[in-house]
């Protein structure tokens, strides 16, 4: 049998393997993005960037609570102007490695999304990922756009008008019908869908002081604890739309990545696993995935994609 081919096409861009660094993990600098690419990621996503600089929430912002992480980083970012410089630098470092760059953006308003997208496109990333699903800024921004099909569609349309780059829209699991949101954003021109952002929000209380530990009190839950929910969301979304899906949530090993692909994912996001296994996790999962394909006689990722749909 020939060696399995791990490469996947995503909106006409080739990824050397399906593993994608998820937004908000290590994506704060060009050098870190390059490091993750060298560690074996098939694509890397930058930390979500908004129109203007934000410090984010005070600490504690991230906790390892036992079965996953909980975070309320609060969208800290240097603002779109500085982000363009970081993304240009990142693009130059990634090009020789053949690793595509996904630039994640957020904004408070529909029009703001268009503005940030236009700005960030100056750096010529391979994709723009539209983060409409952060649960940690509700107090300031109100309900995430991902919570309502019309809002999600309006943001997608604004970004679609602003840029010609492929657009990935990142959805929230915290909705009764994620497939309906997925259809709405596909209808407005999303080229791909990323699912899921963090679950919740959740809360962890210190029983000695009786106080929530996160300074924001609540935070988004990620890691192994959310994997079955992420898998179900990816299953629902990939059955509802024709565009490719980046399956994200709780993947920490090759078997988990296979599960996402069988649920219908074209690519697989890796976030919290960087905490459990370090940046080396990308090469490790890639080799576990290769081993699985060899053992089970798969020569191509597409042979596994959506297998669960027939059940």
């Amino acid at each position: 049998m020939t060696a399995p081919d791990l490469s996947v096409p995503l909106c006409g861009v080739r990824l050397g393997n399906p593993l994608v660094l998820a937004s908000g993990i290590l994506g704060t600098s060009a050098e870190l993005l390059e490091r993750v690419a060298r560690c074996g990621a098939g694509a890397v996503t930058s930390k979500s960037c908004g129109p203007t600089p934000r410090a984010g929430h005070p600490n504690p912002t991230v906790l390892a609570w036992g079965h996953g992480l909980i975070n309320a980083v609060g969208l800290s970012n240097p603002g779109a102007d500085e982000e363009v410089r970081i993304l240009r630098d990142a693009k130059a470092r990634l090009a020789p490695l053949g690793v595509p760059l996904i630039a994640s953006i957020f904004a408070e308003t529909v029009q703001g999304f268009g503005d940030v997208a236009r700005k960030v496109a100056e750096a010529a990333p391979d994709f723009i990922e539209v983060n409409i699903s952060c649960p940690n800024v509700e107090a300031e921004f109100g309900r995430p756009f991902a919570a309502d099909a019309r809002d999600a569609a309006a943001v997608t349309a604004a970004v679609r008008r602003a840029v010609s780059l492929p657009i990935i829209v990142k959805l929230s699991p915290n909705v009764p019908d994620i497939a309906a949101i997925a259809r709405a954003v596909e209808g407005e021109g999303a080229d791909a869908i990323a699912a899921i952002n963090t679950l919740g929000p959740g809360m962890v209380i210190d029983t000695d002081s009786g106080k929530p530990i996160l300074a924001n009190r609540t935070g988004g839950v990620s890691g192994p604890a959310i994997r079955p929910i992420a898998v179900r969301c990816v299953y629902d979304v990939s059955r509802a739309v024709r565009v490719p899906v980046i399956g994200i949530g709780g993947v920490t090993c090759g078997r988990d990545a296979v599960e996402m692909i069988m649920a219908g994912a074209t690519a697989v996001g890796i976030g919290s696993a960087v905490y459990y296994r370090g940046p080396e996790v990308f090469a490790a999962i890639r080799e576990e995935l290769r081993g699985f394909m060899e053992t089970h006689g798969y020569s191509d990722i597409s042979q596994m994609r959506g297998l669960a749909h027939d059940a």
């Binding site: 290590l26 980083v73 905490y275």
Partner: peptide
């Protein structure tokens, strides 16, 4: 910030 190696805030040349 996180102290856990995920948030990227203490980056020093990668």
């Amino acid at each position: 910030k996180c102290g856990l190696g995920v948030c990227g805030s203490c980056d020093h040349h990668g």
